[in-house]
């Protein structure tokens, strides 16, 4: 599928008295929607969360356009509820939005709002739970308030997944998760991409970004400073320093261990790829 969400020369600033007159977002142009995993990165306050709220029209740009396909989403005739079914937003700490008495009911909230039949809702709930590695038999009737924080978050994400959007946007999905849960989440993201979804992840963790992203979009002080593949992005140390970001720890480690990086490890940024390459290398040289 082609890109279907286009931001064109988008600027945003907060209005009201006492609000800063500076643009929070400044002339952002980008397209999303291809079946890939895009990471939006940048320092705190660079405008990442503000940017994703424009995707479904939760914020209105002060100037510039957001197009869904060829329709301007702020045109009078455009119904934003359509957009919100197609693009699922998962906010920071989504576990705080749970409110139903059982896990299954909470996940069913979205599909129910879409006006689906009970049978379809049931099926979507089960599918979403399985995708988020929540065993329906164990979890469906439990109260969401009695789960662990990691489980709560998976329930909340399942609630968005059950609406079966084409694109899923996560804001800091790994914040506050233990390393094992982060790994599990990386697996889940990879499976979602394989299932044909467009994934957008806002993250502070360069390790996580290196692990899952096919494309990196970097923001600095409200401006788009990079849009392209992660390898090139992490290779440019000067730019990284300029915009206040770190390199993934694997790259740091490779630099300290051996410089220059051996040819067969060139361009490797994720641990998984690293493991595969090392295994292949060892196998080839019969080590």
């Amino acid at each position: 599928m082609d890109n279907y969400l286009h931001l064109k020369h988008l600027c945003f600033k907060y209005t009201g008295i006492g609000a800063s007159t500076q643009d929070v977002l400044n002339n952002i142009t980008l397209s999303l929607g291809v079946n890939e995993c895009v990471a939006i990165i940048g320092q705190s306050g660079s405008g990442k969360t503000t940017l994703i709220q424009h995707f479904t029209g939760l914020l209105k740009p002060s100037s510039g356009y957001v197009f869904y396909g060829d329709q301007d989403i702020w045109a009078k005739s455009f119904r934003k509820s359509v957009l919100r079914k197609k693009i699922g937003l998962v906010f920071q700490f989504p576990e705080t939005q749970l409110f139903e008495e059982s896990v299954a009911k909470d996940i069913a909230f979205g599909p129910k709002n879409m006006g689906l039949q009970q049978v379809d809702i049931e099926q979507r709930v089960v599918e979403a739970m399985q995708a988020m590695e929540l065993d329906p038999a164990l979890f469906r009737n439990r109260s969401p308030f009695h789960l662990s924080e990691g489980e709560k978050r998976r329930v909340a994400i399942a609630g968005v997944l059950a609406m079966q959007p084409d694109m899923l946007v996560f804001d800091e999905p790994t914040a506050g998760l233990d390393p094992k849960s982060v790994q599990r989440f990386a697996m889940i993201v990879r499976r979602l991409v394989e299932a044909g979804k467009a994934i957008v992840i806002v993250s502070h963790s360069m390790d996580f970004v290196a692990e899952v992203a096919d494309r990196v979009i970097a923001l600095h002080a409200g401006k788009l400073v990079y849009d392209g593949n992660p390898c090139d992005f992490f290779a440019d140390i000067k730019r990284l320093r300029d915009i206040g970001l770190e390199r993934p720890s694997l790259l740091e480690a490779l630099d300290t261990w051996h410089r220059p990086v051996p040819p067969f490890l060139q361009g490797v940024i994720s641990f998984q790829e690293f493991q595969n390459k090392i295994k292949k290398f060892a196998h080839f040289h019969e080590l």
């Binding site: 709220q53 479904t56 939760l58 509820s81 919100r84 079914k85 699922g88 937003l89 906010f91 989504p94 705080t96 939005q97 909230f109 979205g110 709002n113 879409m114 609630g159 968005v160 609406m163």
Partner: peptide, 13 residues
């Protein structure tokens, strides 16, 4: 406001 955004994103009206 945050919760409202989250629930609207889940189709709440």
């Amino acid at each position: 406001q945050r919760l409202k955004n989250a629930q609207v994103s889940r189709g709440a009206s």
